[in-house]
Amino acid sequence: MPVELSDEARRLIALFETEADVTVRDCLIDDDNDRVIYVVKAGEMADAIGPGGVVVDRIESKLDRAVKLIEDADTAANFVANTLAPAAVYNVTISENDDTIAYVEVAQEDRGVAIGADGKNIDAARRLAKRHFDVDGIELT
């Protein structure tokens, strides 16, 4: 399923790929415009972060925004788990009835991390899961 990108998202991807020398699969700009989320090709996360987080720090300074990195995955379940990191995800079950819903078992102490302030993390996870795997919703269990 191809992802449609805005001109700004394309510009942000080009910047990150140039700085980190990695492949970025997607870029999501939070609604309040204070965070950019990059989906990085599987296996390239270490290079995207850089030693001691130097690449992410450099990008955050250039953009004057927070940056979150998510590693791409080849299955919907693994992708959903990656979108909720650093929360401890024990299991993801994809239910395909009328809608496709990902039921995510998260450590109780990490529910707040998975949801994020004002629901930012779970909302971003839902948007990305819809864009990449046509998952209609994510529910924490």
Rank of each mutant, 00 (worst) to 15 (best):
D72A: 11
F79L: 03
N82G: 08
T83N: 08
E60L: 07
T75E: 07
V80F: 05
N78M: 09
P86V: 04
F79Q: 01
N82C: 09
D74S: 15
A85F: 11
K62N: 08
I59Y: 07
I70C: 04
I70V: 15
E60D: 06
A85E: 15
S61T: 12
I59Q: 07
D72Y: 13
L63C: 08
V80P: 01
E71S: 07
V56Q: 03
V56W: 03
A77T: 10
K62R: 14
A85K: 15
P86T: 01
N78V: 00
A77Q: 05
E60W: 02
V67D: 07
R65G: 10
L69T: 07
A66W: 02
F79H: 02
R58F: 12
A73P: 03
R58W: 10
A66Q: 14
D64Q: 08
N82L: 06
T83V: 13
L84F: 11
V80G: 03
T75D: 07
P86L: 01
T75I: 09
A85T: 15
V67A: 14
A81I: 12
R58N: 15
K62S: 07
A81K: 05
K62A: 12
A85W: 05
E71N: 01
E60Q: 12
A85Y: 11
A77M: 11
N82P: 10
K62Q: 14
N82T: 07
R58Q: 11
A81R: 01
E71A: 04
A76P: 06
T75P: 06
A81C: 14
I70P: 02
D57E: 14
L84A: 05
N78C: 04
L69V: 09
A77G: 10
